[in-house]
């Protein structure tokens, strides 16, 4: 029996790292094959939306354009990271059904490939953001708090992702539900705006949205080099909560997934 306690998980993790690192890079390579800019397209697409949204929404929210560029850029980049992992996790076993039927790799591997590929893309996006902002005279730099935020949010998203991947493979409708909820959450999460009003701070619609804390951690670490321990502990506790369910679900169902495809 494979045990999934944290310590026992490490060897599997390290043993498979080479494998899923290769697959993640390969998937990125395949997707952008024959395009001249390659993966830069992702960052370019984000930059274009920031440039388009910025001048309009900064007026709407009565914020200085330069400040608003900072707010919206890290908001969009972190949200793209979150929604990509969640969205792709839902269908990961269905996409890889051929591999799952014809190899004996542990199924979590496919989830790690999704997470790792998005971590790499996130890092690329962040580097480009730092470059652009520094060129335009903003003094923001990569910092250790942002690294911590990336690690914690990745842990959170991988647990949630694996859980969703199992549920969505068994019940195909959940994928559609997740899709709809994520579209809604794009507007309910402070991505294009920030929580400044106390009425919003107190609102359950904001407080109960776990992604609010994740995006907020990213934004504060990126712009202010600061971190809210309160928010961090909320995300960590949710991660542990999901990790527990992931552990139970994997233990019970990981061998059944192949029959659900």
């Amino acid at each position: 029996m494979q045990k999934y306690l944290l310590i026992e998980m490490m060897p599997l993790f390290i043993k498979n790292f080479q494998y899923w690192n290769y697959l993640a890079l390969n998937e990125i390579k395949q997707k952008y094959r024959r395009s001249i800019l390659g993966t830069l397209w992702i960052s370019l697409a984000t930059t274009i939306s920031i440039l388009g949204i910025g001048p309009i929404y900064s007026v709407l929210f009565n914020t200085r354009l330069s400040d608003y560029f900072l707010i919206v850029s890290i908001g969009l980049v972190s949200w793209n990271y979150i929604s990509a992992i969640i969205g792709e996790s839902c269908g990961v076993f269905i996409t890889n059904s051929g591999m799952i039927k014809d190899t004996s790799l542990p199924i979590e591997t496919y989830c790690y490939v999704v997470v790792w590929r998005n971590v790499l893309l996130l890092l690329q996006n962040l580097i480009i953001l730092y470059l652009i902002f520094n060129i335009f005279g903003f003094r923001i730099f990569p910092n250790i708090k942002l690294v911590l935020v990336i690690i914690v949010s990745t842990f959170f998203l991988s647990n949630l992702g694996i859980l969703l991947s199992l549920v969505c493979t068994r019940f195909r409708d959940i994928t559609q539900i997740v899709d709809a909820v994520m579209k809604l959450l794009f507007f309910m999460t402070p991505i294009l705006w920030v929580v400044k009003d106390t009425r919003l701070e107190e609102s359950l619609l904001v407080k109960l949205n776990i992604f609010y804390y994740v995006v907020d951690l990213f934004r504060n670490a990126f712009i202010n080099d600061s971190i809210s321990l309160n928010h961090l502990s909320i995300v960590v506790s949710f991660s542990l909560f999901f990790a527990f369910f992931k552990y139970m679900a994997l233990k019970k169902y990981k061998n059944r997934v192949v029959y659900w495809l």
Binding site: I100, K101, D102, T103, S104, N255, R256, V258, Y259
Partner: peptide, 20 residues
């Protein structure tokens, strides 16, 4: 596929020694 290890038994046991 059971011998290969992608299909897991619903009941019973399988023991495979050696690379596949």
């Amino acid at each position: 596929r059971v011998i290969m290890g992608s299909y897991h038994p619903s009941s019973g046991k399988i023991i495979v020694r050696g690379s596949i």
